[in-house]
Design a protein around this nucleic acid. Structure first.
Length: 351
DNA sequence: TAGGCCATCTGGTCCT
DNA sequence: AGGACCAGATGGCCTA
């Protein structure tokens, strides 16, 4: 993009412009969070103004001193900038900038709202915009798949779906939310782990993932995400509005730690450990767009589905008793098994 | 210091 | 004409 000299002069970030900003914006600017742009353009701007005469009606032709070698420019000839026109241009530009700022703030607000309903929300460790969108897409897809298939998700596959295409730090964050080791469910996503990473089974990074399964203890270093204490993540404030899926998780959340930044995202309260079913049923994330399917089934018989998903009638015929066989199976972790059972039962039975 | 992320400015395009 | 939307450019901040 080539700016004309005049346009360059127009690039003004003046005090008057700040007056058009919202209070929040001014506050941000006061904090030094100002973007690019030319604050130092004012002088050149003044220089231009001095060159202009005062006649507002003047609409002179473009300068004739182009020189004979220069080809004649096409299109409408540029009007010479008078002071008044300059002033109007400045005002128009300032208003446009203010609108654009507001528009972007609205966009960011919407994104923040999205962060709150997407798994792994944290005030302190925000997902980036792109990761938020990716995670949201995955999340929607995974939930849609639940609805479409009428089957409860295999947790491993569910997490795989969530983490599809996410960066390693975000994957770690999701894993942290699930109290999982990302390497246990995303082998395809980390084909070539950095050399500095400890091998599976090596000592973990303290405080990253409390999930300490025998033989699977390594965490992935990815601060700032990795510093999150996952024990906070599942802390549910009673009565906290978590959205339509909230009833799923009533009574199935476990938290031993202090409250995490509320509000928390709704669904990723899936605690505990995964069974060896992952070995048999986890779908390769690289092909999940085509082949993803949740492996844990529940009977097609009697009990109605959860009203939060299947409607207030709760009479989705596909929703029946949940069969959690094959889901459990982490040896010596009956607590997690009970948790899992409770959670899955909570999902597929009316509370 | 490089790279990622972000906020902002800016000009172009489309629409009302 | 003016507003909404978009994409490119720019510079600040932060982290590895």
């Amino acid at each position: 993009m080539t700016r004309s000299v005049l346009e360059e002069q127009m690039s003004v970030e003046s005090d008057e412009q700040q007056e058009l900003c919202s209070p929040a914006e001014r506050e941000r600017s006061a904090e030094g969070v100002t973007g690019g742009g030319g604050e130092e353009e004012e002088d050149r701007f003044h220089h231009l103004e001095e060159d202009e005469d005062d006649d507002e009606e003047e609409e002179e032709e473009e300068e004739e001193e182009d020189g004979e070698n220069k080809p004649k420019r096409r299109g409408p000839k540029k009007k010479k900038m008078t002071k008044a026109r300059l002033q109007r241009f400045k005002i128009r530009r300032m208003k446009a900038n203010a609108r654009e700022r507001n528009r972007m703030h609205g966009l960011n607000d919407a994104l923040e709202s999205l962060r709150k309903v997407v798994p792994c929300y944290s005030k302190t460790q925000k997902l980036s915009k792109i990761e938020t969108l990716r995670l949201a897409k995955n999340y929607i897809w995974a939930l849609s798949e639940i609805l479409r298939s009428g089957k409860a998700p295999d947790l491993m596959s569910f997490v795989q779906a969530l983490c599809k295409g996410l960066s390693q730090p975000t994957t770690n964050l999701v894993a942290g939310c699930l109290q999982l080791n990302p390497r246990t469910f995303l082998p395809e996503q980390t084909p070539d782990l950095p050399a500095h990473l400890p091998p599976v089974g090596a000592s973990s990074y303290p405080g990253h993932f409390p999930y300490q399964s025998p033989g699977l203890t390594a965490g992935l270093p990815s601060p700032p995400y990795g510093t999150m204490d996952p024990s906070h993540i599942f802390h549910q404030v009673k009565g906290q509005p978590y959205g339509p899926l909230e009833p799923f998780f009533d009574g199935v959340l476990v938290s031993d730690g202090p409250a995490f930044d509320p509000p928390l995202s709704p669904p990723l309260s899936i605690n505990g450990n995964f069974s060896s079913s992952f070995k048999h049923e986890a779908v390769a994330a690289t092909d999940y767009d085509k082949s993803f399917s949740f492996s844990v089934h529940y009977g097609g018989g009697g009990a109605g589905g959860h009203p939060a998903i299947y409607g207030s009638g709760g009479s989705n015929p596909r929703c029946g008793d949940l069969q959690v066989d094959g889901l459990m199976g982490f040896d010596g972790h009956s607590h997690h098994e009970r948790l899992m059972n409770a959670q899955l039962n909570a999902i597929f039975h009316d509370s």
